[in-house]
């Protein structure tokens, strides 16, 4: 498969994987730690959305589905299926050390392991998913916080996970 096309499709899959799982697991609802609260309110003060800000603060402060997605891809690239499962265990340990129950990170790592293994039969390599995930996380955390937090806020509203805090 063409490498650039593969990376583009992998980026879309990785983006959907981590955004859907993180939103379902309630990241936009409450800040897990004080740091996430500060990030969320800072983004809101700059014209962004509070739920989107909490989401960004939470993925900044603990390894959630975004880290799970990236680490599972790296694990599968290095040692195959075992790597993805080890990544899920390590992400869970990291979650618990970072004051997070660990549902989002572990689920993200496990789903990404399954996705990478299945898509390897269609010509996608784990490397494509690693690059794709870096691009996906850059679109949320790296380009424009105001716009990305509003987008996440909209997704959270549609999935019934919008924050009740002010």
């Amino acid at each position: 498969m063409n490498e650039l096309l593969g990376v583009a499709i992998a980026a879309i899959i990785a983006w959907l994987n981590f955004v859907i799982i993180d939103t379902l697991m309630g990241l936009p609802e409450v800040p897990g730690v004080q740091g996430a609260d500060i990030v969320g309110r800072s983004i809101k003060n700059r014209g962004g959305d509070l739920a989107g800000g909490f989401f960004q603060g939470n993925i900044l402060c603990s390894p959630d589905a975004s880290a799970g997605t990236l680490l599972a891809s790296i694990g599968v690239m290095l040692i195959g299926l075992e790597g993805g499962l080890i990544a899920a265990l390590f992400v869970f340990i990291g979650n618990r050390l970072c004051a997070d129950p660990g549902f989002a990170g572990t689920t993200g790592a496990l789903t990404m392991t399954i996705i990478v293994v299945c898509f390897s039969h269609l010509g996608f390599t784990p490397e494509m998913f690693i690059v794709g995930m870096v691009i996906a996380i850059t679109t949320i955390q790296g380009i424009h916080h105001k716009t990305s937090s509003k987008l996440i806020g909209n997704i959270a509203k549609r999935m019934g996970r919008y924050t009740k805090l002010n």
Binding site: L24, M25, G26, V30, I79, L81, E82, G83, L85, I86, A88, L89, F90, F92, P101, G102, F103, A104, T106, L110
Partner: peptide
């Protein structure tokens, strides 16, 4: 459930089991 800290039979017990097994197999 998504905010619960209780350790249950379905989470995280199997995750730890397959993680440890994967380390042995690797």
């Amino acid at each position: 459930r998504r905010f619960s800290w209780t350790n249950s039979a379905l989470f995280p017990t199997p995750i730890i089991a397959i993680g440890l097994l994967a380390i042995c197999f690797s």
